[in-house]
Amino acid sequence: MDKNPMDLKIAVKGIDKVYNDGKKSAFKAIDNVSLNVYKNEFVCIVGPSGCGKSTMLRMMAGLDFPTKGIITIDGKKIIGPGDDRGMVFQTYTLFPWLRVEDNIKFGLKLQKFTKAEQEEITYKYLRIIGLEKFAKCYPKELSGGMKQRVAIARALANNPEVLLMDEPFGALDLFTKSQMQLLMRDIWQKEKTTVIFITHDIEEAVFLGTKVYVMTPSPGRIHAEIDIDLPENRDLDLKDTPEFIKIRRSINEMLHPDSNKLK
């Protein structure tokens, strides 16, 4: 992928995040992290729990702020959340009092689309996630995987510049998880949305990403930036190919150098 500086979407420059700053209990969660996300990239940030990857994403969303450094989108400093950065959470965040279609329309209504436009966009994304039949259901009637699919549709319907995903498949069973990974690849190839995807699952990161940032904990740092040189069209068989396994193992080696030894 060419990296024209004009295509730079999100730039993280020298971020520190310190909790309880200035107190005895001060704790540095993120230490001098810099990273660049270009247009149309599918960037995965992988790391063990406690490495600050979720905090990183929340700061990109504008839900939290760095202690030091700056984060920009299209060159403008991020000062709070906005509809240019859609987000999908690990917890189920569909609005339980709204039917599936009204969940997807939530952002569209705020953007003042006409009724007809709302309807058209909503059904386009319901079709993409394959849940047209469930348009009139309340979230409580959906399974965990279906809820996350609607959450993805709701975020995409807003047509964000960047889609931020915080371990969205972390609570799903293995089969549903791989189905969702296929769906995500499919959506990304069709829509070419810029995606930043947080996960602790190395396989997931390699399978989904065009680029993977490896983070290590205490304090959270970027350990490596890896361009994933795998074909555009990906199916689950790819996970068994030598090329895939090689990348996966090299990341595993970085995160857990002694993983073969029993502690």
Binding site: G86, T93, L110, R154
Partner: peptide
């Protein structure tokens, strides 16, 4: 997270209070 979902869909503080917090 429910409030954050509202924010990232473009809701202001006021909208988040009336359209997310209160119904929830």
């Amino acid at each position: 997270d429910l409030l954050a979902a509202g924010y990232t869909l473009g809701a202001s503080n006021t909208v988040t209070i009336f359209k997310v917090l209160i119904p929830a």
